[in-house]
Amino acid sequence: MMKFMIVEESIYNIFKKVGKHLVRHGYNTSHSGNISIRSGGKIIIKRRAAMLGDLQLEDLVVSNLKEEDSSSLIASTELGVHRAIYLETDAMAVIHAHNPYCVALSLIEDEITCIDAEGFALYKKIPIIDVEIPAGAYYTSIEVPKMLKNYPFVVVRGHGIFAKGMTLEDALQYVTGAEQSAYIRYLTLMTGKPLKRDFSKEKDFSIW
């Protein structure tokens, strides 16, 4: 049985960089959102109510991967969702953010088809799920991992996005990439004009 767990400086630096990016670019408000990685058979996750854009080393909490422990007293409210994602998918890092355009489109669409070339090539579509009580861990911990088995991200309608990755940076790219695709789609919808080239019509992503 492994007895120790140290949060290395290098890990803190990655959390700080990613947290700052999410807040600075409007994916989260001052205290919303949470990020974590899987390391040494444990979860390292942001502390509850810590400012994502200004994380300190003590804002990183080490939690058990397989079962709840006392760290849940101070860990992010969404620890249960992160844990479920790690246990049920291949995620090595998880980000939960409140991407405004993804959230906006989730309120009017059932899935967000990527119509921009980047999103079309990398993501194809952004799935949306309905959860009875979107915020808080219980319901999302049941529904979100199911989708993340086959997609890198999922938007919980009206709430925000959960993205997985091999690393935090990897998950960050999914968060920011999804938002970019949602933003482009939103802008074109706003014009009310037909698309000159609709990538989503060229490939059938309903099968994806």
């Binding site: 890990i11 990685i37 040494g40 058979g41 090595m92 091999m166 690393t167």
Partner: peptide, 19 residues
């Protein structure tokens, strides 16, 4: 691929290797 991780740091390496 898919993203860079520090090649000299230990954190997370055993987990990623198992994957």
């Amino acid at each position: 691929a898919p993203k860079k991780i520090d090649r000299f740091t230990m954190a997370g390496k055993p987990d990623l290797l198992v994957l």
